[in-house]
Amino acid sequence: MRTRHPFTLLTLAAALPTLAWLLPAPAGALGTAAVAFGLAAAAGVRRVLVPAVVTAAPFWLFLFVLHDLPTTLAIGLRITTMVAGFVWLAAVLAPDRLVEAMVARGWSVTVAYVFAATLSAVPLFRARARRIVEAQRCRGLSPRGSVAKRLRALRALALPLLLSALHEVDERALALETRGLRSGARRTPLAPPPDPALERAARWALLLVCIAALVGRLV
């Protein structure tokens, strides 16, 4: 999958949750979740499938607490599709290839960069989160104790992650502007990713399926 055109990967990742929400529950969402997990497993069980499952699990817990079984199933499978699809996409989509593909189609470099930065920030974010946990523990923050205590601890972990990330986005935007990335000049990438006709057709087909599902839902 890694070698597919970035647009194909994006289309697939977008189509899965769309269909999960449009197709009748719970069978439709069960199908899309299965496909998403299948893709994740193909990309690597430990590296992709396990994180996808782990990320989706807490949602189920909340749903079980708040809703009855049919609702939990319907919503849970849809959320699972979204989460698994996103984790899969982040794993298989190389941000630099996406930028090249977008620029080759005439997108502005800035838009392409912002898009890719969002995706490539996921592993960076994880490393930063780990650093912050370690730093706060070395300042005496205990991850144990009463619920109230742990909630307060969460603040000391989540806030710096958010603040420093926001701050950085600010700085990056500034750095881009100073380098003139805002100009609308079109750049020709050195090696735009190949986009075989078959893949192109598959993307359109997927789009049509989504539209059909939408129409089917409305009428």
Partner: peptide, 22 residues
Amino acid sequence: YAPEDLARRVGSVFQHADQQLF
């Protein structure tokens, strides 16, 4: 000892320490 207990005796500053402020 866990790091949060050792903090009674060890103070530390890591690289990217500015990211821990909140």
